[in-house]
Computed example of a mutant assay.
Amino acid sequence: MIDAHHHLWDLTAVHYPWLAAKGVSRFFGDPSPIQRDYLLPEFRAEAAALGVTGSVHIQVGAEDPLAEAQWVQTIIDANRDWPMVQVVHCDLTAPDLAQQLDVFQALPSVRGVRQIVGRAPGEDAQTGTNALLDDPRFLEGLMLVGDRGLSFDLQLIPELMGKTAGVLAQAPRTNVALCHAGSPHDRSPEGLTAWRQQLKQLSQLPHVWCKLSGLGMFQHRWTVEDFRPIIETCLDQFGADRCMFGSNFPVDSLYSDYETLFRTHESLVPDSLRSQVIGETAARFYRF
C-alpha cells in the first residue's frame, strides 16, 4: 500500500519560508503546529501501522527546490527498506528548464514535477500563479516534462479547471496527477455541484489521474459523510485505475490523526477497488 502524497522537512537542512514565517495564516489555516521538523520516522510509524509500505514525497515550498530534492534523496538512500519516490518543484516557464530537469533527473528518485497553479481563491491571484495558464511557456514546459518521462502534479481550484483542461489537452503525453481532488473549497451543495461539473473537464482527459488527498484543508471539522460525495464523485469520474490515496501529512495532521484519515478513505472506497486506490494506481503512475 502506498501513500501517494505527503511531505517531510528538516528545518535545519532546508529553508522553507512559509514554515519560518510565524503568525501568518495560510489558506488551510494556522500552520504553527507543524512549523517544526517532520521526518521520516514519525511519518513512517503512523503509516506503517496501517499497512502502508511506501510513499511519494511531494515538494513543499522550499526556497531552493534542488536543495530540497537532494535532501529527500539522502533520506531515501538511508532508508532502503521504505520505498519512496519524489515529485520536485520546477518552474515550467523558466528559460533553462531543460538544464534544471537534467540536474533533477540525475537523482534516481525523481518521478515528476509540481508547479502550483492555484491553492485557494485569492491567495494565488495575488501572487500571479494563476497567470501560468496564459503563458505559452507553461504548455511548452508541460510537453517537455512528458517527453522526458516525467509526470506533472497539478494543484488548482475548481474555478481554473476549464482553462487548465484546455492546456492539458495539448500535452497528451504528459501524465498528470490532480492533487487534492481539485481542491473543492466550497462544500455547500451548490459548491460541490459546480466542482463536479468542472472536474468532468479534467476527468475526460485520459492522461489525468486524481489524488484523494488534502480533503481536510477546506473543512477542518470534517466527518466521514463530508468526504463521501467527494470520494464517490472522483471514483465515478476517474475510475479506481486513475484514483490514488494520499494523506497530505503533516498538513492534514492539523485536522486529524493519520489513522482516522486513512480509515475514513478506506471505508469510502468499495472493497473491490481498495487495492487499486491504496497502492496499485500510485505504483503505476509513479513507477515504483
Rank of each mutant, 00 (worst) to 15 (best):
R119F: 14
V85A: 08
I157R: 05
F104R: 04
D96R: 05
A45H: 13
C90P: 00
L144K: 09
Q86F: 04
I75W: 09
N130V: 12
V145K: 00
P121H: 05
T127K: 12
V56Y: 04
E63W: 06
A94G: 07
A49D: 11
G128M: 11
D37M: 08
D135S: 08
P121C: 04
P108N: 10
S109A: 15
D135Q: 11
L92A: 07
D77R: 10
M143N: 14
P158Q: 09
D147N: 13
D134M: 05
V103C: 05
F152E: 02
G122Y: 07
G122A: 06
A78C: 03
G122W: 10
Q59A: 14
L66A: 04
L97M: 10
Q73E: 15
T164A: 15
G141M: 05
G162I: 12
A62C: 09
P65A: 10
L66S: 03
V117E: 04
L40H: 01
L160H: 13
V117F: 02
Q115K: 08
T93H: 01
D30E: 13
P136Q: 07
I157K: 00
Q86Y: 04
I76A: 14
R44Q: 13
K163R: 15
L107V: 09
L101R: 02
D77H: 03
E42N: 04
D77W: 01
T129C: 15
L160S: 12
V87P: 00
R114Q: 10
R111V: 10
D135C: 06
A49Q: 11
D153N: 12
P95W: 10
V113Y: 01
T93S: 11
L92W: 03
D81V: 05
D124G: 04
L66K: 02
E42F: 03
G149Q: 08
P31D: 09
A125P: 01
Q86H: 14
V113P: 00
R36L: 08
A45R: 15
V52Y: 00
A125R: 14
D96N: 14
A78G: 12
L139K: 04
P136A: 08
L107Y: 07
F104Y: 15
D153P: 06
M161A: 15
I157Q: 09
H57M: 10
L144T: 13
I58W: 03
A48L: 01
P83K: 01
P121E: 06
D135K: 03
L66D: 06
A78K: 12
M161T: 11
T93L: 04
D81L: 02
I76W: 05
I75M: 10
I75R: 11
R114T: 05
G162K: 09
E42I: 02
Q73F: 04
R44S: 11
G122T: 03
Q115I: 02
H89M: 12
H57Q: 13
P95M: 08
A98W: 03
R148V: 09
G122S: 05
M161H: 14
G61N: 13
F152G: 01
G61A: 11
D64I: 06
L97K: 02
P31V: 02
L39A: 07
P65C: 08
D30M: 08
Q35H: 11
A47F: 01
R148L: 13
E46M: 12
A78N: 13
L150C: 07
L132Y: 12
L132C: 08
A106F: 00
P95D: 15
I75G: 00
L133K: 08
V85Y: 00
